[in-house]
């Protein structure tokens, strides 16, 4: 039974929250190959204990009536998430759409490494590389779509 809206009021995010949010989001879109390669440059994936998952479940995606109105439930998507702890105590979270458990766990490991001073810089660099790839993909899609824009021109009207 649902009783009250669960959308919590947005609390102001600290700078470190914002950094972590972006990190988790970029890691969530990195491929296993990209993450494995990045971890190789950081001396390999460290040992990590699973605190939760990796596990696949469902998130119910919500929409709004008319795009802007009241909420409704559109349908579910598969989501895979993992929470791990490194030997140094750092905890990392990974989550992404789809069913790739290996990817979610690697993302959690990289998130935890991003919490440590030794690897923060390297993880940030990696995330910015992922961001660059994503931006390039979006730009290509936008450019392809733009090429299908209709350029209307009005025929000259015959005036007497």
């Amino acid at each position: 039974m649902q009783t009250a809206a669960k959308t919590e009021p947005a609390r102001p995010l600290s700078a470190s929250d914002v950094a972590r949010k972006h990190r988790i989001e970029h890691l969530g879109r990195a491929t296993v190959e990209e993450m494995s390669r990045a971890l190789d440059t950081m001396g390999g994936a460290p040992e990590a204990v699973n605190l939760r998952g990796p596990e696949t479940g469902l998130v119910m995606i919500r929409g709004r009536m008319g795009g802007t109105g009241s909420l409704f439930n559109l349908g579910e998507a598969t989501v895979t998430r993992a929470t791990i702890r490194l030997a140094n105590g750092a905890v990392g979270h990974g989550q992404r759409l789809g069913g790739d458990k290996a990817a979610a766990r690697l993302a959690a490991i990289l998130d935890a490494m991003g919490e440590t001073s030794a690897h923060r810089k390297a993880v940030e660099t990696f995330c910015s590389e992922v961001a660059t790839r994503l931006e390039a993909e979006d730009a290509k899609l936008a450019a392809e779509t733009a090429a299908t824009r209709v350029d209307f021109f009005t025929m000259v009207r015959g005036d007497d």
Partner: peptide, 23 residues
């Protein structure tokens, strides 16, 4: 198959106004 998966939660409403438009 979907009935075999646990529910993790509900998303925030998707913002179709901020869509990366393909058409």
């Amino acid at each position: 198959y979907r009935t075999t998966l646990p529910r993790f939660g509900y998303s925030r409403a998707v913002d179709t106004g901020a869509m990366l438009v393909e058409r």
